[in-house]
Write a protein that binds this DNA or RNA. Structure first.
Lengths: 354, 354
DNA sequence: CTGAAAGCGCTTACAG
DNA sequence: CTGAAAGCGCTTACAG
């Protein structure tokens, strides 16, 4: 790989920094020298750690700008300070729903100068625990857990070590904030909407029973039926595990069992898409023959045929809020954040029972 | 926040490590002490950096296991060694296509004990350059760039600093490997398939002209037409910028312009979904009235109505390959990896012209 | 083959 | 208010 014409006597520095390279390896020390103060002082000014004379502050600010100094987060982390990075445990990096939340997190965090470290828990408590170890090993300043399977106790314990924000559950603990979307109400709203259209035989495609999200939505469904004076019928609920194919299977099963229904409430949009296909195969038309409403309001749901009515689940905002929460926790302020409530989005997959 | 009943005299260590905590803060030094050797030796054994007597090696291995030692990547990074982390520049963390690639990367990298640092470039060369700075600041060992806008020159320059693998282009440089999917052939295959079904008036929904992916697919379309003896007609191609709404608009535009066509080749599945909706609005049936084929083979495409024929784009494998490539580069071996070729996936959105 | 020592770039008690 | 010094946990010349 060595080129014959390469200059023979490059200084180490020259070797490391070709002309067209970004991010010069300027160090704290260089800034200190340039400003005529000690490294400690520069550090303190940068971190707002102590009161420093305006004069030196100016000199340092000037030097920082001139040299385009950017602190090395790795060194920072080692020295026991912050790493300006937040660990984010998501379940699957390619989930259409959580992907949007991740974008919200990344955006909010990067505005504050923080990096995000995304790791996938794969809906497995063990795996999530491993993620936490990895994240701690990397000295993240805090962790955001998007709806995991970790026990409350475990989460509480972690919060003793570093700030945690967790979505998808309600949990009170010091140094921890939970952000919970009202899935119960969402499930209820969806069902109530069907009831308001005159439907009485309403099937439910449930999500993974191991997720609180899923069970809460189901509970909402039951509650709505109850209030409408409609008897709950267990045979009308089929499980779809939150995936397209699950929704497909669930509807097939319902149909094969000879269940009669004029409406379907699906615990998420992905399963609703599977349901669409299953209905289509049986020549059952949406919404003429059966109405269907999803949950989550994925970007693609407005492009289904027909466009899917659904419950809006503010993924992006949830991401942003989680990021804000962890940032506030880091600053020692108790976050007082409100998750937007669920809302019905009416499109074309639902119609009044005729 | 201070509790009255808190024990007053906890050691610093006790404070930092509650009973139920994972990942003990075992250090290299502790392992060295336990094994009765120096820290240097432990380091060397762990890194396979030098030949060490079997005896000491055993003692160290034993100590490592017993103490469950896991090296601190932050310290490692600072000391100039590896951080065991790879930066991944994706364009948008919530892209249905790239999301799958990210999963492939994460999976492959974590098997090798590496972490992935995902950052979003947002299809902007400046932003991508910033990402590289951030990543370098965090001392990643290598960078994977998923189809960015960065110039070849810039990439080459970066490769002088650390190994780079880039997808979506063909570029030769030392310390850099490019992994290119054959978009030209994909576009050609899609079009040829339509031709083989008897279609002659084939519209094309193009992607963002700033992406090589997009222009290559378009080129494939033209080439196929050419070989089939069909004259290229510029008015039959409409731009959709790779998004659902763009596909929707593109078809509307085609229709409003009074263009006649019996088939559509869409440069990706997302735009095809938009096209579906636009056609549906005009009561044009797929595939009875017009056939349509997408590109990418997203997970959801088999749940469209009708299920979408498309060109398979191996996102997951591409992710895996990128990860393998960077790992090999890190080991100093020249990767010899093959990206799977495009393939037609026939579903129900295409039919012979009658 | 293997230690002792210096150093990576910062932070933070410790002393003025 | 501000330095000098030690230290974070590792790696890597430098000397045996």
């Amino acid at each position: 790989m060595k080129s014959k014409s390469a200059p023979l006597n490059l200084s180490k520095n020259a070797l490391k920094r070709p002309i067209d390279t970004p991010s010069p390896p300027v160090t704290l020390q260089m800034v200190a020298d340039a400003a005529g103060v000690s490294a400690s002082t520069v550090s303190r000014i940068l971190n707002g750690t102590a009161i420093v004379s305006e004069l030196k502050k100016h000199a340092v600010d000037e030097a920082v700008r001139r040299l385009a100094f950017v602190p090395n987060p790795v060194a920072r982390g080692l020295a026991g300070g912050r790493t300006l990075s937040i660990g984010v445990i998501t379940q699957s990096i390619d989930s259409p729903f959580y992907g949007v939340a991740l974008r919200g997190i990344e955006m909010e965090l990067s505005k504050a100068g923080y990096s995000s470290l995304f790791v996938s828990g794969r809906w497995d408590a063990q795996e999530e625990a491993r993620c936490i170890d990895i994240l701690r090993g990397r000295r993240v300043d805090g962790i955001i857990v998007l709806t995991g399977r970790l026990s409350d106790a475990k989460l509480r314990a972690c919060a003793k070590l570093l700030p945690i924000v967790v979505t998808g559950r309600t949990l009170k603990a010091p140094n921890l904030v939970s952000l919970d979307f009202d899935n119960f109400k969402g499930g209820k709203l969806a069902t109530q909407y069907m009831v308001s259209l005159g439907h009485r035989r309403i099937a439910f495609i449930a999500g993974d029973p191991k997720h609180p999200d899923a069970t809460e939505r189901l509970r909402g469904y039951k509650s709505a039926l109850d209030e409408a004076g409609i008897a709950f019928k267990a045979s009308l609920v089929a499980e779809g595990l939150f995936h397209e194919d699950g929704g497909h299977l669930a509807v097939e099963q319902l149909l094969n069992n000879g269940e009669e229904f004029t409406a379907i409430v699906s615990a998420n949009d992905q399963m609703a898409m599977g349901a669409y296909l299953a209905l289509h195969r049986k020549k059952i038309r949406v919404p003429q023959d059966v109405s269907i409403i999803g949950f989550d309001n994925l970007l693609t749901s407005s492009y289904c045929l027909p466009p899917l009515s659904t419950i809006h689940h503010p993924a992006f905002e949830l991401g942003q809020l989680s990021a804000q929460a962890i940032l506030q926790l880091l600053q020692g302020v108790a976050p007082k954040l409100k998750v937007p409530p669920p809302e019905v989005v009416v499109r074309e997959s639902t119609k009044p029972l005729t």
